[in-house]
Simulated scan of single mutants.
Amino acid sequence: MASKLLIVIVLILDLIAFGLAVAAEQRRSTGTTKQDGEDNYQYCVYDSDIATGFGVGAFLFLLASQVVIMVASRCFCCGKALNPGGSRACALLLFIICWVTFFIAEVCLLAGSVRNAYHTKYRSKFFEDPPSCETVRKGVFAAGAAFVFVTCIISEFYYVSFSRANGSSRPYGGETGVGMGAYK
């Protein structure tokens, strides 16, 4: 039987990660070119850098959620063997998909946070091209939020399938010893 407390804890962690990823998308920094006081140089000025913190927070909450699920299920491969059947096959498939979506979400959140934190520091002369005030592309944190949501759903289903395959009371049909009970 799946622990309802664990499911709620993981759901809360994932929802916080999702909310932070959406907030990071909304608050990602933008850069504009400004001229210095003597009008000889142009340089980049960036607004708030709060999206980096939101992205790292989403990264950490999603990581905590994944750790809780994997510790509770003993990462699918440790512990006693699961009972054969549809629940074990479903748990294995969901385990693989869960890790793939988790990895994609973490890469999006980490790459978005690193790129959002990077600010060009150089200046260009007035008669040259203005500096490129590069920022994180629109949609990087949104993609991370989408994969956080998918990971949330799949990890919940994985844990329920794992619990079904682990706690099933039906015995395995094959005998492990030699059946000699009828002979005396």
Score class of each variant (00 low, 15 high):
Ser3Leu: 00
Lys4Gln: 11
Lys4Gly: 11
Lys4Asp: 02
Leu5Trp: 04
Leu6His: 10
Ile7Leu: 13
Ile7Gln: 10
Ile9Asp: 00
Leu13Val: 04
Leu13Glu: 04
Asp14Val: 01
Leu15His: 08
Leu15Cys: 13
Ala17Glu: 14
Phe18Gly: 07
Gly19Thr: 08
Arg28Gln: 07
Arg28Leu: 07
Gly31Phe: 03
Thr32Ile: 11
Thr32Arg: 15
Thr33Trp: 13
Lys34Ile: 08
Lys34Met: 12
Gln35Gly: 06
Gln35Phe: 13
Gly37Trp: 05
Glu38Leu: 15
Asp39Arg: 09
Gln42His: 14
Tyr46Lys: 08
Tyr46Met: 13
Asp47Ile: 09
Asp47Gly: 13
Ser48Val: 10
Asp49Gly: 15
Asp49Arg: 15
Ile50Val: 15
Ile50Arg: 08
Phe54Met: 12
Gly57Lys: 08
Gly57Met: 12
Ala58Phe: 06
Leu60Asp: 11
Phe61Gln: 05
Phe61Asp: 08
Leu63Ala: 15
Ala64Val: 07
Gln66Asn: 12
Val67Leu: 15
Ile69Phe: 05
Ala72Pro: 04
Arg74Asn: 15
Cys77Gly: 01
Ala81Cys: 04
Ala81Tyr: 04
Ala81Gly: 03
Pro84Val: 05
Pro84Gly: 05
Gly85Asp: 07
Gly85Lys: 06
Gly86Thr: 13
Arg88Ala: 06
Ala89Gly: 09
Leu92Tyr: 06
Leu93Ser: 11
Leu93Met: 11
Leu94Asp: 02
Phe95Pro: 02
Ile96Pro: 08
Ile96Leu: 05
Trp99Val: 02
Trp99Arg: 01
Phe102Ile: 00
Phe103Cys: 12
Ala105Gly: 07
Val107Gln: 03
Leu109Ala: 12
Leu110Ala: 15
Ser113Glu: 02
Arg115Val: 14
Arg115Asn: 12
Tyr118Trp: 09
Tyr118Arg: 09
His119Ala: 06
Arg123Phe: 15
Ser124Tyr: 03
Phe127Ser: 08
Glu128Lys: 11
Glu128Arg: 02
Pro130Tyr: 06
Cys133Pro: 14
Glu134Asp: 14
Glu134Asn: 06
Lys138Cys: 01
Gly139Met: 03
Ala142Met: 09
Ala143Arg: 01
Ala143Met: 12
Val148Ala: 13
Val148Asp: 08
Phe149Ser: 15
Thr151Trp: 05
Ile154Cys: 14
Ile154Trp: 01
Glu156Pro: 00
Tyr158Pro: 02
Val160Thr: 03
Ser163Asn: 02
Arg170Asp: 12
Arg170Lys: 14
Tyr172Ile: 08
Tyr172Ala: 06
Val178Phe: 09
Gly179Met: 08
Met180Cys: 13
Ala182Lys: 13
Tyr183Glu: 06
Lys184Ile: 12
